[in-house]
Structure formats: structure tokens, C-alpha cells
Amino acid sequence: MIDRNSRLRLARQVRLKADPRSGKQMLLYPERGLELNEIAARVAALCAEETTVGEILDRMAAAAAAGTPRERIDSEVLEFLCALEDRGLLVVSGS
């Protein structure tokens, strides 16, 4: 289970790349891929190097438009990170 104190990074076989046709950011892993929207791509980029979930949440909150509720940012980013972990795309420690 991921929480604010978890340390994580993208798993070794996962790559974040732009799709040459659509220009959208993709998380690529063996035989599969995820086509990401802009916010998901930003979160995934922050996972490229080992970091804490708290750090990711703080940086996404700082980048979000003024007035975006912090609770919404935290819950939606956490849900996205859990979806990546469920697919084995993250290496998580320290939770």
C-alpha cells in the first residue's frame, strides 16, 4: 500500500517516451503500454528517479492551477500511483 512516506521509482523495464504518431507520453513495458494524459505524464516523469510520494504530491500541488483543492490532488495522484503499482510498474519501499 502506497502512502506519503513510501519511496518509489519506475521499475527497471519501464520507459517513459513520447509516441511518435500521437505525441502523447507513453509508459512502455514489455508487450504493453499506457497512453498517459498530461497530468499522468508529469507524475510518471517524477517517478523516473527515486523519490518519495510526499515529494511528488508537493511538486504536483505546486504546479497545479491556483484554487485546485489539495485533497483532490493528493487523492487522485495516489490513486494513479496505486494503479501503476498494481501493474508492477513501480518499485516501492519504505511504506
Partner: peptide, 15 residues
């Protein structure tokens, strides 16, 4: 940056 729910579409590359 305008906030939107982070989302993705899963693609089976081999198919």
C-alpha cells in the same frame, strides 16, 4: 497548470 484527473489508456503493444 490546469488540473485534470491523471488517467491512461492501456494498450496491448503486441496486438
Amino acid at each position: 497548470m490546469k488540473w485534470e484527473t491523471p488517467s491512461f489508456v492501456e494498450i496491448n503493444m503486441s496486438a
